[in-house]
Simulated assay, not measured.
Amino acid sequence: MTSPITGTAAGVPFTALPPATDGPAPLLVSWHMLDAPRSNAAFAAALPMNGLPVWRVHLGMPMCGARMVDGSMDAGLKLMREDVLMSFLHPFVRQATEEFPAALASIRAQLPVNDGPLGVLGGSLGGAVALRILTDTDIPVAAAAIVNAAIRMRSVVGLFGDYPYDAQSEQIVDGLDFVAQADIIAARAPLLIVSGESDHPELRADAFHLADALDLRSEMLSIPGLAHPLADEPGIEPAPQLPQARDVDAGLTRWFRRHLATASQG
């Protein structure tokens, strides 16, 4: 396989996997989890989608991978302990979404990708970023997929215990409820919802609720034996692909081959 290409796009670190064919090809962009794999390089190794005739460009989330402070996740964990929603989850999703248009322009200037609609993919908190691209931007998207995603931020916050909501945090968390925004998503692009059968029950329930709300504009893929992470700890450096991640990878490859690679040829 061709070696990954590493670089930065408008300050955002990326790991790019080229298609096997020469010439301009469609673009698929991903945002990784904060669980393992928690860097763009590790996410690329967990879900390489080899054989897919598109560029797979995996972007780094804020304060992760090359953007870790002093080479560790400690600074991010401190923000999580300070206020899991307002200092950690929401700012990470907001920053990753807001920095994407400039990063996309830079990717297109650096790599031989075509200028047609792209694919977007997100895992866990990165899934919330991919969904925000659909709900909060007008960037043309041909197909989208999420894996064990943060579909309702209230469910994610609940994993950390009781949270002292106030008027501002209620407004923020409601704005990150993508089941409530299913009509917007359905109008934008077909969505593959990948859910591990051993994921957190709250997140798995949200995946089914979103699939029901989207109806024919989505497809649900359940992965037996998959918990929330897609890789072993520590999840920062590339690691061998786990069997459950291989099943996710195969499903994503089929989805984007049908909806992204085919669309680019039409």
Rank of each mutant, 00 (worst) to 15 (best):
T262Y: 07
G122N: 06
D166W: 05
A25P: 03
V120A: 09
D177Q: 11
Y165E: 13
P190H: 15
G60N: 13
S198H: 02
V69P: 06
D35H: 05
P190A: 12
R258C: 03
P37V: 13
W255I: 13
F256S: 06
R188F: 13
L47S: 02
G161I: 07
V173F: 06
R94C: 09
S30E: 07
M33E: 14
P18D: 07
G175D: 15
L176G: 04
R81L: 09
R67P: 00
T6C: 06
G235N: 06
G60W: 06
L125Y: 03
F92Q: 12
G161D: 10
V173S: 12
A41L: 02
I193K: 00
T262E: 15
P229C: 10
F88K: 03
E219D: 12
M68K: 09
E219I: 01
T97S: 11
A16T: 09
P164H: 07
A263M: 12
I185L: 13
D74G: 02
H200G: 00
P164F: 04
A143I: 10
A75K: 12
S264D: 15
L159M: 15
A189H: 06
I236R: 08
E233N: 12
H259W: 14
G175Q: 09
P19R: 06
A109N: 09
T262H: 11
A182C: 10
V173E: 13
S39R: 00
R154D: 12
A130Y: 09
V29E: 06
V179T: 15
I223D: 03
F92I: 13
D247Y: 01
A263W: 08
P37L: 14
P91C: 04
Q241T: 05
M63L: 15
P48G: 05
L210N: 07
A261G: 03
L104F: 10
A46K: 00
P101V: 03
L192K: 10
S87N: 15
A44W: 00
D136L: 01
E233H: 14
L47F: 03
G158M: 11
L121V: 10
R132T: 02
P224H: 07
L89T: 01
R67W: 14
P117F: 14
S198W: 00
S39K: 02
A239M: 10
P37F: 11
P91R: 14
V69Y: 12
E233W: 07
D232Q: 13
I172A: 11
L134D: 10
P201A: 14
P112H: 12
F100L: 12
D174S: 14
I133G: 00
E219C: 07
I151W: 00
G65K: 00
S124Q: 00
S72I: 01
A261M: 07
S218K: 09
A207Q: 08
V147Y: 02
L104Q: 06
L118R: 00
L216I: 11
N50A: 15
L77R: 14
W255A: 13
D162N: 10
G71Q: 07
H32N: 14
P53N: 13
